[in-house]
Design a protein around this nucleic acid. Sequence first.
DNA 1: AATGAATGAGGCTTCATTCAT
DNA 2: CATGAATGAAGCCTCATTCAT
Lengths: 192, 192, 192, 192
Amino acid sequence: MAKLKSNQKREQIFHAGLKLFAENGYSKTTINDIAREAGVSFGTVFTYYENKAALFRACVTEPLDEFRQYMLTANEELESITLQKLKNLVGQHIDFFMEKEHYLRVIQYVIGQPYRFDEMEVLDEFADEFRSFIQHIVKTGMDKGILPASSPEEVSYGYLAFLMGMRLSFTDQARAHQTNAFKNQALRLFGL
Amino acid sequence: MAKLKSNQKREQIFHAGLKLFAENGYSKTTINDIAREAGVSFGTVFTYYENKAALFRACVTEPLDEFRQYMLTANEELESITLQKLKNLVGQHIDFFMEKEHYLRVIQYVIGQPYRFDEMEVLDEFADEFRSFIQHIVKTGMDKGILPASSPEEVSYGYLAFLMGMRLSFTDQARAHQTNAFKNQALRLFGL
Amino acid sequence: MAKLKSNQKREQIFHAGLKLFAENGYSKTTINDIAREAGVSFGTVFTYYENKAALFRACVTEPLDEFRQYMLTANEELESITLQKLKNLVGQHIDFFMEKEHYLRVIQYVIGQPYRFDEMEVLDEFADEFRSFIQHIVKTGMDKGILPASSPEEVSYGYLAFLMGMRLSFTDQARAHQTNAFKNQALRLFGL
Amino acid sequence: MAKLKSNQKREQIFHAGLKLFAENGYSKTTINDIAREAGVSFGTVFTYYENKAALFRACVTEPLDEFRQYMLTANEELESITLQKLKNLVGQHIDFFMEKEHYLRVIQYVIGQPYRFDEMEVLDEFADEFRSFIQHIVKTGMDKGILPASSPEEVSYGYLAFLMGMRLSFTDQARAHQTNAFKNQALRLFGL
DNA sequence: AATGAATGAGGCTTCATTCAT
DNA sequence: CATGAATGAAGCCTCATTCAT
């Protein structure tokens, strides 16, 4: 019981941090802001995270596991891939990236300042994993005759760039409309 | 025009600011850092820019004019567009975005924190201009039979997202190789 | 007498406090440090001492009783004083002061900051008692022809200064060797 | 001129720090206290000293030079030492230690917490120098027949202990009276 | 009695801005 | 114009104390 309560506060703090880091960057976000957003007192933040940097690190690295889990699941289903399934997959990616705005902004924030944040390493590794995942899809798709001839590597670079740019280059006007546009454009990157 | 004499120092400060804001963000960058990078003394920064925010604003807004200039020139040449010319145009965009790393990182920094920076408005306007420019290309290309049927609006969204994501989602390993990959992928967004 | 049961923990805390206050001073020593050193939990410290200041006060004042007890005993034996007994007495003082390093450091810490700690008063009183004790020895020694002519008051000042300085001015290299040096020097203060 | 002004403020801060560190210890002394005592603003302290620790280090180490200078001068005069001169010398030491209360309290504060402060090393070195100085005096005095047979090393330990204890074990009641007592007692340590 | 999570006051430090030289 | 010393607001972090379990 006691543990549960603790984890709840930790998560409140985590989400407050994620939101505010995403919206205002690292330096502009104060511990006070985070505490207020999380509904806890100033000092409580330090009960759960050693310092501001540790909370930021958690915000950057912990969510990666969810992505990884997703990739594992998706990879298993690749054996029985069809054109429709592949379109669904891309659609899922778009939706997924669209949903995780806060997290992606934090990611982008780190990528944009690679000399400043050590977390960059973890992200580089993850980007490699993701591109491998995409390359595997492209290869399988070409083998099954679903996709036209492509350089899997080029597609993986372009697709990741597109997903990041899509979510991060626009603020949220006409979101629904854009989402469809992005799905169509994303398919073109696969040669569809 | 008395200002002309000192424009050199102003520019040194400007470029120092651009570089450091790009690499470390707004808050982490100190006036001292900028002065040192620019090779001027601390106080001199305030001789040319009223305060830190004014310098940042300049870094965000002033370079837009160069982009605009480029778009105007390119628009004039659209009348005589051919497939090869269009491929060249896309190649130029890729090269251009690749070159302007510092500036684009600053742009992305502002886009990522729209509630924080007033400069966002200017950037939104510019994004609209750029997408209009792209839509004009797509329409002309379709009219001339160079491009397959597309939604010009969708292409414009996807293409801008792609350009931003391309430059900003990767740090600089294997840059030359990636550039080619990006050119190929970009053409796919136009249906090529 | 219900308190008796728990006296063990109280003493653990007391000695942890004495050691850490001696080694790091009052402010630098945290309740957490004390709890860890004492092998009890954080909150338990507050079960036995109302607050940090109360524990410190205990560390400063309680050990004085042991000194007082010693002086009483020694005073009784003064009637039958001989030169050898007096030398033994001085040797005991040196040994005693050498042994009580932690406590003397705490004492010195308070003496060094008399405006800061209320405990100073108690220590002043005790210093007076100790000097009276020394003066009594000197007078008795002169009466018995054991000691050369001296100002008892001057000796009492000098001897106390010497005892304090001896233990507190040196860290613990070559301790055994120094102890002998100090015994010889101490006797000189009595004119021997 | 500009330098002069700077050095003046630096010295004000230095002396404020010395006084307050002596009276209240390191942790209890705040930068704010120092600034107020020095008559400068809070931020100005950091213009002259990188941080609190650096100011403290300066307070501990810089005054040593004055002592060293004194020892050099005194050493030169040792050739023509007489009993009267030696008594004067001891008197000077007493006076000197009596005057430098603030500094000696800071020294004692560091000696009392050797694990806490790196400055201890410098002080250990200085203590060695001082004891060498004393040993030289004792040897010369014995050679010239001024002093009775002694172990120069033992005297050097005892004398330094005495000087420190004298200044630090008593607060300032009856200062003048004590000073004389201490001078007489100090001579006894030399066998006089 | 024992524990340790929650709290927030207080201190060090950074840094934008001002202004005298 | 150029400089950099002076200033103090604001933020991170520590830690004594409280209190519910």
